[in-house]
């Protein structure tokens, strides 16, 4: 063999091995559809559905921000399989490494894709200082439920605790682009974190903002209303909400969410004051809100239950 043919042979051998390995490995996931809502900011909008085998937990908004040095993923979707698809979406846009996987809070539809990014060299998983404890306490229940919902498509999904935590604020440098992270007091959950891409004025609100899909109260109703008041003071050009598309119309979206939460607060308070039981309050509170939100029947009564349990201790 000439040197050149030796080289060709070696190259072919390497290619054959590579193909064999690739065939052995799980099929490469198809990339998710993403929309570039601002330069370098990509979002996959989740469906207003419950998690099913068909949607693999693609029910929340997830995406990524591309810097000059590396990429930050913001929320990863409701299963490792979906996370793998998101990773392909990143790959379709850039060859830069993923240096940060940020979780806006503990809920499965936002964190269960994390495992798909665990082998990115040097990647940090970033969350609120209370995220780790919240996930640990719920891990078993969350995983059991996912297996019930999507069966063996849940394979590979696991909880990954944050390796970098935020107690108040923290900046992440993606190279020529800085993300400002802010940890909030108990609101939607006790571990809500927002991500501001200062360069484009894009705020990832996580589930502090719901659009169209009914919010779920899993932290503090009163705390959430307070935090919404503070979010109003910010001046982003657009908001990537946890569910639905807030976009530039985010202030109106806050109004609608605030109306729902205030109605639940006010009517639940009245029910407690009138010495109605929890069962009675759950049957009565918030009837005017039906029709204004998708999946109302799946979450509303649970929200009133949570509101009652919180507000009965108010005074």
């Amino acid at each position: 063999m000439t040197r050149e043919s030796e080289f060709r042979f070696a190259w072919r051998l390497a290619a054959a091995i590579f193909i064999a390995v690739a065939v052995e490995a799980p099929a490469v996931a198809a990339p998710l559809t993403v929309r570039e809502v601002a330069p370098g900011v990509f979002v996959h909008f989740g469906a207003h559905e419950e998690t099913t085998r068909d949607n693999l937990g693609s029910i929340a908004n997830i995406g990524f921000v591309v810097g000059e040095k590396c990429v930050a993923v913001v929320d990863t979707g409701g299963s490792a399989a979906l996370g793998a698809q998101l990773r392909e979406s990143v790959r379709a846009v850039t060859r830069l490494p993923v240096c940060f996987v940020i979780n806006t809070h503990m809920h499965p539809d936002h964190v269960f894709g994390n495992a798909a990014f665990s082998d990115e060299p040097g990647v940090a998983f970033v969350g609120h200082a209370k995220l780790g404890a919240a996930l640990a306490a719920r891990e078993r229940g969350y995983l059991d439920r996912l297996h019930q919902e999507i069966g063996d498509a849940a394979a590979g999904t696991r909880v990954i605790a944050p390796t970098l935590t935020v107690a108040s604020t923290r900046d992440l440098d993606l190279g020529g682009r800085v993300l400002n992270l802010r940890a909030w007091p108990t609101a939607h959950t006790d571990n809500d974190l927002t991500v501001l891409d200062a360069q484009t004025g894009t705020l990832w609100s996580g589930d502090l903002l719901f659009v169209e899909r009914i919010p779920s109260i899993d932290g503090s109703l009163i705390g959430w209303l307070k935090v919404l008041g503070e979010l109003r003071q910010l001046e982003p050009k657009r908001v990537v909400s946890g569910h639905g598309d807030a976009g530039a119309g985010w202030r109106a979206a806050i109004d609608r969410l605030e109306e729902y939460l205030a109605v639940v607060r006010n009517e639940t308070r009245s029910a407690i004051k009138a010495r109605r039981t929890m069962q009675a309050a759950v049957a009565e509170v918030g009837a005017t809100q039906r029709g204004k939100w998708l999946l109302f029947d799946d979450y509303h009564k649970r929200n009133v239950t949570a509101a009652y349990a919180e507000l009965e201790w108010e005074d």
Binding site: A134, A137, R138, T189, D190, S220, A306, E310, W313
Partner: peptide, 24 residues
Amino acid sequence: ASGGCSAPAGKDLAESMARMGRMK
């Protein structure tokens, strides 16, 4: 119903512990 016993107590455990023993 499912998961009620293995769910963590408290949407905010720190607050729950601080208030322990209060009665109405």
